[in-house]
Every structure is written in structure tokens, then in C-alpha cells.
């Protein structure tokens, strides 16, 4: 698989990679030392995904536009 650094992955990529790792491990035909490496990769992917899920803060802003361009934002109150 393309070895994109885990930190650069989107949630979806990391999740797909994790599923692949789990699948490979469960198939049980990987050499033992590789399965340890796979496990470590899986753990890193899981941590990355968990970080993305944790990062779930609601923030609502209104765009201030001037001549069709967004020039700034103001917090949206009462929504």
C-alpha cells in the first residue's frame, strides 16, 4: 500500500487503512514480525482516527462579505 504518513491522512483514509491492516492480521498469513509491524501501524492509525473524532467542536460563524469576497467572520449568536 502507498505509505502515506499516518499524520497526513484524512479520517477516511486512515479508517480504510486500519480496516486493511485488521483484515490482513485476521487472515493470519502474514509473517510474525510483519504482523507486529502491522499491529503498530494499526495502533497509530487508530490513534489518528480517534484524534480526528475527538476534534469535534461546533463553531458557527457568519461570513462578512464585501464585493463578493469573504473579508471576515463574526460569531453567529443564538443558533
Amino acid at each position: 500500500m502507498a505509505e502515506k504518513p499516518v499524520a497526513d491522512m484524512t479520517f477516511e483514509e486512515a479508517m480504510a487503512a486500519l480496516e486493511q491492516v485488521v483484515g490482513a492480521l485476521e487472515k493470519g498469513d502474514v509473517p510474525l514480525d510483519q504482523s507486529i509491524a502491522l499491529y503498530e501501524r494499526g495502533a497509530a492509525l487508530k490513534a489518528h482516527c480517534a484524534g480526528k473524532l475527538k476534534d469535534a467542536e461546533a463553531k458557527v460563524e457568519l461570513i462578512r462579505a464585501a464585493e463578493g469576497r469573504a473579508v471576515g467572520t463574526v460569531p453567529a449568536e443564538g443558533m
Binding site: 486500519l18 492480521l25 485476521e26 493470519g28 502491522l38 499491529y39 494499526g42 495502533a43 482516527c49 473524532l53
Partner: peptide, 15 residues
Amino acid sequence: LDGQGARLSRGVAQA
């Protein structure tokens, strides 16, 4: 994700 994590652990233990 938790499910995958559990499968991951189980997978390596099984290996």
C-alpha cells in the same frame, strides 16, 4: 473505530 481496535488486538494476539 473501537471495533477495529479490538479486532486489531485480537488479530495480533491470534497471529
